[in-house]
Amino acid sequence: MDIEHIRGLVQADAEAVDQLILARLKSDVALINELGRYIINSGGKRLRPLLVLLAARACGYLGENHIELAAVIEFIHTATLLHDDVVDASDMRRGKQTANAIWGNEAAVLVGDFLYSRSFEMMVSVGSMRVMEILSSTTNTIAEGEVLQLLNCHDPDTTENRYRDVIRYKTAKLFEASAQLGAVLGGQAEPLEQAMARYGMHLGTAFQLIDDALDYGLSNEDIGKNIGDDLAEGKPTLPLIHAMRHGSPDQVRVLRQAIESGGLEHIDTVLDAIESTNAIAYTAQSAQKEADLAMEALDDLPASVYKEALYGLAEFSVNRSY
């Protein structure tokens, strides 16, 4: 099942989410409207809100609150992107200028804060303490992940375990919440709720691992950013960590220097080290293991076309080229 077929299963719901996002972005402050619309319409994959919609339907939910929560998830995700780009001093995302590059860091941070606060305003309207509990814990964990990543930056001694902690906190947690919320809305028992959470966590981990592999494998036109952006920011992702473990002494020396200093002065040597140590293949294999675990977590979910779509999302997460 390809990604367009998957989206087609919940097309009406997804359109309702888009309409709600635009409606809830409205503010009396013109800059919030302008900047918020720019970010929301900048071409993201919208996988996290898609996951909310599919999970809710797969868990038998027939109401409308999944629309509200899918928009909440997208607002939280967008807020983290705004803050990320400021912390990383990024000027490009998805092939377009970042909000902070256009409007400045102050505006980007404050509009990110607006999106966070608006998302909590929206989730309150669902009237579920369990939903509040999951999402408040999620946003706290994401913030911890941001700090963990900051601590890892420019540190060539970052281990694979520390790197995976960042993924689990910073990226996978929102995927986990997205799938878990579907089970909560569907009134599922605790075992299935936790199984859906595991599905989301492994899916998000696989997704991020492939993102980190793509950073060293595709051009700007393919993924909307430049090869080696993570290296330029001094981020020791899994391809670099693996190359550090298995490279020659000369390669390790250059890799350490590249991570410590950031920038792309040694990009050719870094790419050679990544290729000679099969670091991309190792990262892809790690992602596939996570996708397999995600699909295993769905074993007790009743059969439906939406369950098949969740399988399809796991496959897409590791087979994509963008």
Rank of each mutant, 00 (worst) to 15 (best):
M1N: 00
D2I: 08
I3W: 08
I3V: 14
H5M: 09
R7A: 12
Q11L: 10
Q11H: 13
V17K: 04
D18T: 09
Q19D: 13
Q19A: 15
L20E: 08
L22T: 12
A23R: 15
R24H: 12
L25T: 09
A30K: 10
A30I: 02
A30N: 11
N33T: 07
N33L: 04
N33C: 13
L35H: 06
G36A: 07
I39L: 15
N41Q: 15
S42L: 04
K45G: 10
R46Y: 06
L47Y: 08
L51A: 07
L51R: 06
L53I: 09
L53Y: 04
A56L: 06
A58R: 10
L62Q: 14
G63F: 10
E64H: 13
H66D: 15
E68V: 15
L69S: 09
L69A: 08
E74V: 05
F75R: 03
A79K: 02
A79T: 01
D85R: 07
D88H: 11
A89R: 15
M92H: 12
R94M: 11
K96C: 05
K96A: 14
K96N: 14
T98M: 11
A101T: 10
I102F: 04
I102W: 04
V111W: 06
R118V: 13
R118I: 10
E121Y: 03
V124M: 12
V124Q: 03
S125I: 00
L135K: 12
S136F: 01
S137T: 14
T141R: 14
E146D: 08
N152V: 02
N161E: 15
R162M: 04
Y163A: 03
Y163F: 14
D165R: 09
V166T: 14
R168V: 02
A172Y: 08
K173Q: 15
F175G: 12
Q180K: 15
Q180N: 12
G182I: 12
A189C: 04
A195P: 08
A197N: 03
A197E: 04
H202C: 09
T205L: 12
T205P: 01
Q208C: 06
A213L: 15
L214W: 03
Y216R: 06
G217R: 13
N220D: 05
D222F: 11
D222Y: 11
K225F: 07
A232F: 05
P236R: 14
T237C: 12
L238W: 01
L240N: 08
L240D: 14
H242Q: 08
A243C: 05
H246P: 02
S248I: 03
D250P: 00
Q251C: 04
R256M: 04
R256P: 00
A258M: 03
G262W: 02
G262M: 05
L264Y: 02
H266N: 15
I274E: 01
S276Y: 00
T277Y: 06
T277A: 11
A279Y: 07
Q285C: 06
Q285H: 10
S286M: 12
S286P: 02
E290A: 12
E290T: 00
E290W: 01
E296F: 04
D299I: 09
D299N: 12
D300V: 01
A303M: 07
A303Y: 03
S304D: 09
A309V: 04
L310P: 00
L310W: 01
L313D: 03
A314M: 01
A314W: 00
V318D: 03
S321A: 13
